[in-house]
Amino acid sequence: MDCRITNHYMEDYLDDMLDDATRGRFQEHVERCPDCRNRLARGRELKNALNALPEPILDPDFAARAFKHAAAAHTWRRRIDTSKMMRIAASILVIVALGIVLKGGWGPGQLESPKAFVQLNQPEDVQLVFYSEENLENVTFRLEPPDGIELVGFENQREIVWQGNLARGDNLLVLPVIARNREGGSLVAEIRHGSRNKQFRLQLKVQQADHPHPGADRFDSSVAPMRFI
């Protein structure tokens, strides 16, 4: 077994899903390969760290509220949840408020071109991470998908423009996209604030659903970091 095959079996080994023979060959290779040994150690480290996450604490009064509400909702056939409605209202503001931008280093021509892989005819989320050094209001956002790529919910729209605010720090923009042909192309995201603007180009590569990109590279397809500090 070589490094490539060992890497292929790494997750199955961690999950104890290999048959005896394959596990034996895997272990033999790992014992004599420092790189694979290191990858295995990091895999274990992640699993251990996930298991060691602290327990989220449930509000002591939640149970009483929740059971009472469940019974009431059944009786009244409707849900009254003021706090939730307020959160929904707040989330609308947040949805508008987030976006892309940064305080310094703006200007036309500044392009960032990370790459993302999407599968043909399958809705996929492409996530862009942007960093802003300050809260910004009245920011204009513009998205322009390439031919053959559509934003789910905005099919046949070649340009989507909206205004909103930006929060200080990292902002996550989730784009549900679907590739209609294999060509791919550049998705343009532009942010304007006052006289400043910045353009980003995300290279979208399309692959067949039955030929997924190797797992190790999938990071690019789900999270495309565009950090500007």
């Binding site: 989220p56 604490i57 949805i95 408020a97 934003l151 789910v152 919910g153 990292d170």
Partner: peptide
């Protein structure tokens, strides 16, 4: 949520007022 207009822009937790870590002691 996906059906709502452009399910965009959810702030990452470290800057979020509802930082999940605030729940921990």
């Amino acid at each position: 949520q996906k059906r709502s207009p452009l399910r965009l822009l959810k702030r990452r937790p470290k800057d979020d007022a509802e930082d999940p870590l605030e729940q921990f002691p």
